[in-house]
Amino acid sequence: MEVQFWGTRGSIPTPGLETVRYGGNTTCLEIRHKDDFIIIDAGTGIRALGNKLLRERGSTSDVHLLITHTHWDHIQGLPFFLPAFIKGKKLRIFGPHNHQSSFDKVLADQMQFSYFPVNFSQLQADISPRTLHELESFEIGSIKVTPKYVNHPVPTLAYRMESDGKSITFMTDVEPYRDILYGGVCPSEDEREEFEDVQAAVREQNQQIVDFAKGSDILIMDAQYTKEEYLNGRVGWGHTSIEDAIDIGIAAGVTQLLLFHHDPDRTDEQLEALVNLHRERLSEMPNCPIEFLDGAEEGKTFVA
């Protein structure tokens, strides 16, 4: 099984000389195994992927698209995904449940006339959106997919793909769970019991994140900020620091860790420096399971 990146940038596209290496398109991944393929997220990177699919596979093959969540940077490429315009083409879209509005309505709303000239209902492909339940696995060809809800301001799914004994876990737009009620400080002895219960809940949720990624050959993990950036005003924004991403990768015993959802302000040079810094740190760590660390790079393929 392998993964190719079509978009790695967080929040907003960032074309330009300083982002040539890691790329400026927003989230889009292609997972391949034998003849099967899955697309994850419809950020701006999906446009080029759609063109390639039509070129290489023609207009007949079905497309399976997994959406992590419906924030702009993960769906804004959908109106430019050519396969969606082809009559009779089967486009299966999977995504998270939403408490305010249905999943398909959220997708359709970004194509209202005020925003885009073609309405969602005018797309010619045979499109069927489906909302997913936590840890209920399903198969796309030879690839087994398992979704899990993670901590982000809007309901968001992480995905684990498994095939022929290999596994790739994709976890973006996720922040470690934390005590948002007490901030880690027990307010009074009267509330001690509730406080301890909350601490336990936080630990359990974070352990579930590690368990979900357990033993992955490749973990692609949100690492938008440095720990320092995270602690200085970005707590609660729904993203993970590079340091925490590495800790999760170590705890989960993953072999390859790819840092993802690069901050729009992060230049290639800065990211390279951060990767080198942490590679060095890992190399000095005894029994570190992570054999390979890098930033996810647009265009590049990694094999599990």
Binding site: P96, V154, V198
Partner: peptide, 30 residues
Amino acid sequence: NSSYFGVRPQPISNLRRATILMGMNTIRNL
């Protein structure tokens, strides 16, 4: 505790745990 967040060893039994799990935004909107 809805099936979307399903498969739990034990159901979420109190509001504090629900808030940690689902986040302030979701709880507030609900």
